[in-house]
Amino acid sequence: MKPFSRHALYRSKKTPVSTFGVIIGIVLTVYVIGMMLLFLWALSTALKTTDNFDRDPLGWTRSWAWTNFGDVFMKMRVQVSGNDGGRHWVYLDQMFLYSLLYAGGAAFIQTLTTATMAYMTSTYKNWFSRILHTIVIITLILPIVGNTASFLQIMTDLHLYDHFYGIYIMKIGFNNIYYLIFYAAFSKIPKDYRESARIDGANLLQLYTRISFPMVSSLFWTVFLLLFIGYWNDYQTPLLFLPDKPTAALGLYYFLQSTDPAFANPPMKVAAGICVFIPIFIVFLIFRNRIMQDLNEGGIKG
């Protein structure tokens, strides 16, 4: 399916854009131009030397200081406590590795748990499944705030604090909005498919992994990508729960707060922002159709 075909249902030469559409179009254009100007300014700034920027913070770069990006890898660092009890520095390359471990692991575990729980409750319709389904709906509509302190205390008491496995365990949650999307997708799969496979000798696990799961695999990877992007960009969870494994987003937070004159200047800071932005932007460019497709479109295959 083409990426925008579903939303372009009504595009036709016979139906001209109405005044209402023109007004929205103008507002949208202003909004997008504003955003593009900010990004262009940032790109230009990242390529300026400090002197060049001080002379002309607005104009397009003439210095093409690509070395700023190299400097970011050399200078962007966070001091952490090591396993030996001493202090040592974590640089951007290692922060990217931590980002990958945090975002990749947490997103995969959460997507897998959510999909599995949705499969179980939609397929095995017993009293416990009904309770689980109700729990998800209640927790989604009930706003609870201010439990971060308690989270931190429980994580510390369970020796999960500042460990990747602690974060992974924390993310084995199914009470999120994607549960309902998976639930709807699994509910749409005809029961006959599983029954035929059962007659052919498939066991219960195979019914899930070989029959039902492949039909929602597209949705699975879409949800995984959305969660991955969210966790890659999240710096507050690592700040509180993984302080000695700083991710790239957390490193950027410390970098922005830094007052060290060696890198507390706009070109360096903006270049650091671009360095952290590039990997996820590449992921976005490669998977943009999958990420932006309707989640209900990606639900069922076949």
């Binding site: 997008v32 955003m35 900010l38 890659w232 710096y235 903006v270 922002g273 932007f281």
Partner: peptide
């Protein structure tokens, strides 16, 4: 417009804050 509107959701809030 769809891509441009969705782009800020992809970019780390810290990056947008710096810019």
């Amino acid at each position: 417009f769809k891509v441009m509107l969705f782009l800020p959701a992809v970019i780390c809030s810290m990056v947008l804050v710096i810019f």
